[in-house]
Structure formats: structure tokens, C-alpha cells
Amino acid sequence: MNLFRLLGDLAHLASIFILLHKIQTTRSCRGISFKTQALYVLVFLTRYVDLFFHWVSLYNFVMKIFFIASSCYILYLMKYRFRPTHDPSLDTFKIEYLLGPCFVLALIFNYHFELAEVLWAFSIYLEAVAIFPQLFMLQRTGEAEAITTHYLAALGVYRALYIPNWIYRYFTEGVVDPIAVVAGIVQTGLYLDFFYVYFTKVLQGQKFELPA
């Protein structure tokens, strides 16, 4: 564990609490992509199968359980509790285009050709692109509530912090995880456009609006 990873994980936690706060206080999941949230559930379920056979640490264990539980809870809120506030006609990204290639990539690029390892690699690739339906929705509506942008910013910060974490680990532990690093850099790159608008508009007190 190092400071970058700890802060990254805390940003990830923060993003989930921001999202829950947004849904609970506005009593609405407007502006949130159900598809992206469903993909995160799949990401956590496929990545954390090692909960059953590989103990890392109490921290690791608690966080994994929390990510699985909270992502399922968010899905429940969107699907049942606040269902009428979700507009499927805006959430139209075809996730088949993400699931298929990620699965094929996981079959080809993995550390060991066995179920848990293929699922792990799949989850890494899928997490990298899971934000697409959300960004696509943002692009379609062209604007977002401030709190939704804070949620996305926290998610982006979490990913960005994992990069110095890998650099740090390379120098201190000699460890490199090429699958996680390549996918992680791609994933962080997807946030660059968003970050640009977030820093130049939202943090200056303006509304999040994309140029027409």
C-alpha cells in the first residue's frame, strides 16, 4: 500500500458516496447511466471472485465487499426505487460493443489461462471502458447537474491516482502489472475531455455544458 493507492481508493469510495448522495437527496437518478452502473456491478463480480480463495488483507476484503454491495445497491435504487426518474431513451449506448471485445481481449491477454484469471482480465478491460455509456449520455444531453460531475470527477481522480501508484510500485517493489497499467492508462485517458470541462467550468462556478 502506498499513499497514491490509498488516496485513489478513497476517491473511489468518495465517488460512490457522492452518487448515493445525489440519488437520495434529489430522489432521482436523472443524468446517471444505468448501463454504466450495471457494468460496474459486472466488473466487481468478475474481479473479486478471488474473495473465495485468495486472502490479501482485511482492508482489501472490506473494500471488495463494499464495492460489490454498494454497486448492487445503486442498481437497485435505479431499477426499482427511483425507476421513473431514469430515462432509457437517453441511455442508448450499445454495451454489446464493450462486452464482446473485452471478453475476447481477456481470452487472449491474461496472466494464466484459467477461469479466475480470465475473469480478472475481463474485469480490468471492462472497467476501462465502463464509463462510455455515461459519457455518451452526457454528450447527448450536453449538460449535467454539478453533483453528477463531482461524481465523475472523483471516479477520474481515482483512476488518475493509480498511475503514480504504479510508478511508485515499479521503483519500490519492482512490480509491473502490464494488463492493469495499459488498461488503466486508457481508462484515465477517457476522462481527459471531461476533466477539461470540469476544471474550466464547474470548478469556476459555472454550469457543466458541452460546447454545441
Binding site: 481508493d9 474481479r47 482489501n60 464495492f67 494464466h112 484469471e117 493509480y162 501508484n165 509491473v176
Partner: peptide, 10 residues
């Protein structure tokens, strides 16, 4: 050697 036991990140 691939970091088989190295899935210690979230």
C-alpha cells in the same frame, strides 16, 4: 513471471 499473486489492487 506474470504477477499471478499480485492482484492486491482494487
Amino acid at each position: 513471471e506474470a504477477p499471478k499473486d499480485n492482484h492486491d489492487e482494487l
